[in-house]
Structures are given as structure tokens and as C-alpha cells.
């Protein structure tokens, strides 16, 4: 079985986000970029399936600016076999919407025919939590979102999902889309020899036009603003003072 993993290049999760003064978006120029953390978990899960003999090949795909090839190289260094870069934007500030990403991925999947797609549940930039579900819809495939545990059982995937009430286990027919939640696994770090080896692994370059997908946005960004700031209150010296303050406010 072939496993396909879409990965996104996003602002590094340790970088403090700054809203541009003109309200046009978040400043991404000269900012450290990394693989979306949920996608790292997805890549790790795919590699573990291969190591367990349940998958033969792991293909990673990224859609966005040309620099996303660095993100793909990271996935190759972790252990993916091959990469596809679909260039769909020139400017790092252009975020391709999940619907367009799903359409391009469908094009890739029609050619690659994987048995399983593992995606991150959400990217930490637009926080949409949508691409996996949209891709499943376009392909007419089953979906198992927010995965906490994944097992392959013949031609089905058994997935334990993180839901509001706790955990839910479902069985989905393959081919299927699984989206990774935080506790699916702990991704590995790529070793230096593997980083060197990754430079020689195949990386195909395509464009959105190759798949006939119009990536123009459906959502027009009117403005981007800073959230309302919350200011610090007061420090209290002890528990008694805290209790008195809360009683004074009438909340306990």
C-alpha cells in the first residue's frame, strides 16, 4: 500500500505572530518557517506504517510557494520516500484555501492511487481544520478525523478519534483519509545522515495548472487585526486575600 501525506509550510510554532500595521495580514517576511506540527505527526505515522510492514511507500505532497520544497526535504529526511511539490503561489503571504488544496490533492491522488492519506487535522496558520474532510468529500472516500490511534485491519482502518466526550473508535473502508491529532505519536527528529540522504530522494515539481485547478480564493480577506489585549490584573500575597477578592467580586 502507498500512503500519501500532504504537508504545509507554516510559520514556526515558536515564532511570535505579528499582524501587519496595514491590516493586510500577518508578517511572514524573514520569519522562520517550518512544517505544520500536525503534518509532522502525519508523516511520522506514515513512516511507522512502513516500518511495520503495512505500507510500501510514503509519498509527501506540498502545495504553496516554491520554498515549500524545504518542508518536503524535512519529510524525506524523516523517512518519506518521494515528494511532489505543487507550486500554486509566488508570495509566501498567499494562503491557498483548503478547498483549492483539496482539489489539487485530488488530482495528485487520481494519479498516485494511494490506499491511505494521512493529513494533519489543522494547520497552525489559518486554523481551518478542513482540508482532510474536504478531500474525502471530493474523492467520495471515508474519513476518520482527529486520530489518536490508527490500526490497519485488512482493507479497513480502525481509528480511535479524539472527540468532545472522550474517545470514539470507528472503522473506515480504505482508501480513506485520516487526520492526525496531537497524541497520535511523537514525531522523530531527522538525523544528519538522513538529512544528507534526503537531498538525493526524488522531488517532482508541478503547478496547480497541471491539475486544472483554479486556486483563486472564495474568501476575500477584508482585514486582519490584533485581538483585543487582556491586561494583567493584580498579584495577591496569599490564599486568604484571593478568597476575599473573589468574594468581593461575588463570583464565589
Amino acid at each position: 500500500m502507498k500512503v500519501l501525506v500532504p504537508v504545509k509550510r507554516v510559520i514556526d510554532y515558536n515564532v511570535k505572530v505579528r499582524v501587519k500595521a496595514d491590516g493586510s495580514g500577518v508578517d511572514l517576511a524573514n520569519v522562520k518557517m517550518s512544517m505544520n506540527p500536525f503534518d509532522e505527526i502525519a508523516v511520522e505515522e506514515a513512516i511507522r506504517l512502513k516500518e511495520a510492514g503495512k505500507a510500501e511507500e510514503v509519498v509527501v505532497v506540498s502545495i504553496g510557494v516554491k520554498q515549500a520544497q524545504e518542508t518536503l526535504r524535512t519529510a524525506l529526511a524523516m523517512g518519506a520516500d518521494r515528494a511532489i511539490l505543487v507550486v500554486a503561489a509566488d508570495d509566501v503571504h498567499t494562503d491557498i484555501e483548503p478547498l483549492a488544496v483539496a482539489k489539487i490533492l485530488k488530482g495528485v491522488i487520481d494519479e498516485e492511487a494511494p490506499g491511505l492519506v494521512i493529513a494533519g487535522k489543522q494547520s497552525i496558520d489559518n486554523d481551518m481544520n478542513a482540508t482532510g474532510q474536504m478531500l474525502a468529500a471530493l474523492l467520495g472516500w471515508s474519513q476518520a478525523t482527529f486520530a489518536n490511534e490508527l490500526d490497519i485491519d485488512g482493507d479497513a482502518a480502525v481509528v480511535k478519534r479524539e472527540v468532545d466526550g472522550g474517545l470514539q473508535t470507528i472503522k473506515v473502508k480504505m482508501p480513506a483519509i485520516v487526520t492526525a491529532d496531537l497524541r497520535l505519536n511523537e514525531p522523530r527528529y531527522a538525523s544528519l545522515p538522513n538529512i544528507m540522504k534526503a537531498k538525493k530522494k526524488p522531488l517532482d515539481e508541478k503547478t496547480a495548472d497541471d491539475y486544472g485547478v483554479d486556486v483563486s480564493p472564495r474568501l476575500e480577506i477584508v482585514k486582519t487585526s490584533e485581538p483585543e489585549a487582556r491586561s494583567a490584573g493584580e498579584m495577591v500575597p496569599d490564599v486568604d486575600t484571593l478568597v476575599a477578592k473573589l468574594k468581593e467580586k461575588g463570583i464565589v
Binding site: V17, L219, V222
Partner: peptide
């Protein structure tokens, strides 16, 4: 967006 570090208005 960005874990609540920015608020986007979209049409």
C-alpha cells in the same frame, strides 16, 4: 487565525 493571535475578517 494563528491560535487567536490575529482576527481575520473575511467576505
Amino acid at each position: 487565525i494563528y491560535a487567536g493571535n490575529a482576527i481575520q475578517t473575511v467576505k
